[in-house]
Nucleic acid binder design. Structure first.
Lengths: 344, 344
DNA sequence: TTGAAAGCGCTACCAA
DNA sequence: TTGGTAGCGCTTTCAA
């Protein structure tokens, strides 16, 4: 965090200063130590009930709120779990997962903070995170290298956990191997007798981390079968989908794996408008198993993703924090199975 | 933030302590002051180039990263903008808006932090936010009362801005009046000759802040026209939509405003499956103008929302921070206009 | 039962 | 050009 040389204020307009524990002590007629004991319910020392009351009343009257930074500076640790905001818009599944994770960590008394990197990359970003001295960092997607991990560890971060397709040296990994998603789709299409498979690659930046392994998975599934793979770049726009559908016959494809349900639906609609029958002429498979996929007919075949339980992940973080001695663990957590509906 | 009496650690496994500026000073053979000057590029003092180099090298070697909390404790201010995570899942529009806002504030050198409330409500939550001593707080949705605002101000927060349907005493407000969304839909349906309008109310918790004013807007638009309004609770599930469609004829409705595009699409699909013609027998109107709405035929009529520009909001925050003297401003920022397509 | 005081890591004022 | 040092707000040990 870069600071300008001057405080951000103009002329401060006679604003009352923020009350500190010393102010509370003064008002209650006790020492700062007593204030601390009372407000933190310290069990080691006995404070008389009248004193407690006086302190509480004084704090209330002044609107005193403790200063988290000062407290954690003094105590030498914090319960902050930092989660950098993912670079790209990651869709509904991620948001739900993140919300659940937040709740689960909250139940373990951690404070989850999502940090908006603001264009920093790689080691720069890691430095910015390290300045906040979180007890744990959870990095979704890619973007953290071994150097970054080292910076964080050096700054006292007890647990560095990556969530994504790649493992990173020195960090715990919740490996979400998206190749499996593509593989499941590819195997399914092969089993259905398809031989010329298109794979949609989203035009939106930042999705390569997911789309590349999914594509690789399809290739892997089809390797040695004689079936072909064709890459189909596609921005998420109606016109782009129509254009792709317009040249569909010339592509000679009998199936398409469309990255996810949203792209799949967009493309399927465009294909139908173009008179390409689904699944007759072309099978369509999406991923993520969204409600969305049941809107069109035929209903969309999709790859259902099984994300790790948020509670388990929270427990993993907690364990890693309390026992930083153990080496980084890798857990393979992404389940992928085809839900066969009518579009394939 | 509640702290457990003990640090989270088990037995610390001979971990090297986190390097401080004093360590850097020692290694470079200079004082801590000099380290601070060099690493912050202090322009007031001149440090010789060899010294600068020695300090930089020492910092590099130790992997030194400054401690943000200590720094802001000392300097008495921070550039942190706190954005509490919204209670309910708020959809694509909000996420895009939030991402843009983050980028815009980042360009003004603020650090945006999204804070996971973790089940705290009202004044409790405000206290938790205040402990972090942010320079500004942006509260989406409802959930902050006048008391909460007072707590924040008392803790030195220079700008409290609410984004949502309600104004809050003492805070700047970016008023997003969702009644307008319902009103636009209602007026449109009335103009198309519809007289019996259903309004979908999402079954998912937390969306009442938006759905209630949207419903009120429809009522408002239809008041005095003789047209009727029927409330239609609907969870976001295929089966629920089918059930609702199953008793559609008995409801005697000739139009429905479906909260947003997602619910609209779900319901429209169910209506079509039930043989209810759209727009012939029933007109359907959504909101949010998502790409999704173009998937089914007829294409979905929708209410397009114009959110405030993220850059403008960032500028507003910046101004409020630098001039806390001026009283709280209210800006009316939500634009709503009907995009007429084929479903109505 | 309460108070005095040290010190967490950092910046900035004043002196050398 | 560099160093000594006070102090931000808080907790906690040691004394009283």
């Amino acid at each position: 965090m870069v600071h300008p040389p001057k405080p951000p204020a103009g002329p401060t307009p006679a604003q009352r200063p923020v009350p500190t524990s010393a102010d509370v002590a003064r008002l209650a007629g006790v020492s700062r130590a007593t204030v601390s004991y009372v407000l933190n319910d310290a069990r080691a020392v006995r404070i008389s009930e009248p004193t407690r009351r006086r302190v509480r009343a004084a704090a209330e009257e002044l609107g005193y709120v403790p200063h988290a930074a000062a407290r954690s500076l003094r105590s030498g640790h914090s319960r902050m779990v930092l989660v950098p905001a993912p670079a790209a818009s990651t869709g509904f599944l991620y948001h739900r997962f993140f919300a659940e994770l937040q709740a689960a960590l909250g139940r373990l008394d951690y404070t989850v903070v999502q940090y908006g990197g603001g264009g920093l990359r790689g080691d720069e970003a890691a430095r910015a995170w390290a300045e906040l001295r979180p007890v744990a960092v959870l990095v979704p997607g890619g973007g953290l290298g071994p150097r970054g991990v080292a910076v964080l560890r050096r700054a006292g971060v007890r647990a560095v956990v990556t969530l994504g397709p790649e493992r990173v040296e020195g960090a715990h990994a919740l490996l979400m191997d998206h190749e499996r998603v593509g593989r499941a789709a590819g195997e399914h299409l092969l089993a259905r007798g398809r031989r010329a498979v298109g794979v949609v690659l989203p035009g939106e930046p930042g999705l390569e981390i997911f789309s590349a392994p999914r594509l690789a998975g399809v290739r892997h599934a089809l390797a040695g079968s004689g079936a072909t793979v064709t890459e189909l770049p596609l921005p998420y726009e109606e016109e782009a989908a129509a254009a792709l559908a317009g040249r569909w016959r010339s592509l000679g494809l009998d199936a398409v794996f469309a990255y996810n349900d949203e792209y799949a639906m967009l493309l399927m609609r465009a294909l139908q408008d173009e008179g390409v029958s689904v699944p007759g002429r072309t099978a369509v498979v999406g991923a993520d198993d969204l409600v969305l996929g049941r809107l069109l007919r035929p209903r969309l075949t999709t790859v259902h993703l099984e994300l790790p339980s948020a509670r388990d992940l929270a427990a993993l973080v907690d364990r890693a924090v309390s026992e930083p001695g153990r080496g980084p663990q890798t857990h393979d957590v992404l389940g992928a199975r085809v839900v066969h509906r009518a579009s394939s």
